[in-house]
Simulated scan of single mutants.
Amino acid sequence: MSAGLDQAHVRHAFGRAADSYEEHAVLQAEVGTRLRERLDGEDLAPRRVLDVGCGPGAGAAALHARFPDAQIVALDLAVPMLRAAARHAGSPPAFVRVAGDAQALPIADASVDLVHSSLCLQWCEDPGLALAEFRRVLRPGGLLLFSTFGPDTLKELRAAFAAVDGTPHVSRFVDMHDIGDALLVGGFRDPVLERDDFVLTYTDARTLMRELRAIGATNADTQRTRTLTGKAHLARVIEAYERFRRDGVLPATYEVVYAQARAPEPGQPRRERGADVATFPIERLRGSRR
């Protein structure tokens, strides 16, 4: 389930975007709100909540408002994001800020009741390893709740670059089928997967590209070209994007996958990849929809 991403690049890009992120991350804020709405039907009184990929801390603050008696731990790979989160933490701080990698959480085994992660998993080099870490830190029966981008995300921008050259310029994202399989392989119980499609519109492609840079969502593919894109090359990409223009605007599609599952009881083994439990069609997952 590896996404082939350069983690040093991810850390640097999001660290550089810490001060501009919230101004431009309108979609990310909406997805976070919709993700946490899935807690409305859950009977939860968590003692510890872990927010993985907390960014500048708005999600952690919302979790504190929902669960005021819980310890909220806000974790991010980029230290500048954690510094930016201080304004949401307040004084005394509503949550603890911790620097760490989702694929190697600095958290004790079976010490968390709720793992929350909004639009972080797609930036992991190996999302399957992150899911294994989520299972490790969750208490038996604990809840995992996350959102991530699916492969249709930025499909117009990807197609525009592909029309000009064969080098990846837009990061690849994991399919919902693979996410469901990975949850089952990891031993999670009762997985529920849902999908939303968002289409944002822009007057021109340069505005979209500037916005992506402002939130740190730059190309982290390990096979990307490491040199700067020349003006002539970029002009051809912008021209190629124009074929998607409708009603005077350019669309940018985002496929968002929401997932929740329960941590298994003690002693339940992880399933081997290729076992029947990890390969049945995604439609058989309760609550899933395409």
Rank of each mutant, 00 (worst) to 15 (best):
M1W: 04
S2P: 11
A3H: 12
L5C: 04
D6Q: 01
Q7N: 10
Q7H: 13
A13V: 00
G15W: 07
R16I: 02
R16K: 13
Y21R: 06
E23M: 00
Q28T: 00
V31H: 03
G32P: 02
T33N: 15
E37W: 10
R38G: 04
D40F: 09
E42V: 15
D43R: 15
P46T: 13
V49D: 02
D51E: 15
V52F: 03
V52N: 00
G55R: 01
A58I: 00
G59P: 01
G59H: 01
G59K: 00
H64I: 10
A65F: 14
R66E: 02
R66C: 06
P68A: 09
P68W: 11
A70D: 15
I72T: 14
I72E: 05
I72H: 06
A78Q: 10
M81P: 02
R83C: 02
R83T: 04
A85S: 15
A85K: 01
A86I: 10
R87H: 14
A89C: 05
A89H: 01
G90K: 14
G90L: 12
G90Y: 11
P92M: 10
A94K: 09
A94D: 09
F95Y: 03
R97C: 03
V98S: 01
Q103Y: 07
L105E: 06
P106D: 11
I107A: 03
A108V: 11
A108P: 07
D109R: 15
V112A: 00
S117L: 07
C120G: 03
C120Q: 00
L121R: 08
D126G: 12
L131N: 03
P140G: 12
L143H: 08
F146W: 06
T148N: 06
T148H: 00
F149V: 08
P151C: 08
D152N: 12
T153S: 02
T153P: 01
A159L: 11
A160T: 00
A163W: 04
G166I: 07
G166M: 13
T167M: 15
H169I: 08
V170N: 03
V174G: 00
I179Q: 00
I179F: 06
G186R: 01
G187E: 08
F188R: 05
R189C: 08
R189K: 11
L193Q: 05
L193K: 03
L193T: 05
E194W: 09
R195A: 11
F198D: 07
T201W: 11
T201D: 12
D204P: 04
A205P: 02
R206A: 14
L208A: 05
L208R: 04
M209C: 06
R210W: 01
L212T: 00
A214N: 01
G216M: 03
A217G: 06
A217R: 02
A217N: 03
A220D: 03
D221N: 14
Q223Y: 12
R224A: 02
T229F: 07
K231C: 09
K231G: 09
K231Y: 10
V237E: 07
I238T: 13
E239S: 11
F244E: 02
D247P: 05
G248D: 07
A252H: 02
A252G: 08
A261I: 15
R262A: 11
A263K: 02
P264C: 14
G267A: 14
P269G: 12
R270P: 00
R271E: 14
E272L: 14
G274R: 12
A275K: 09
D276T: 14
F280I: 10
E283I: 10
S288T: 13
S288I: 08
R290P: 01
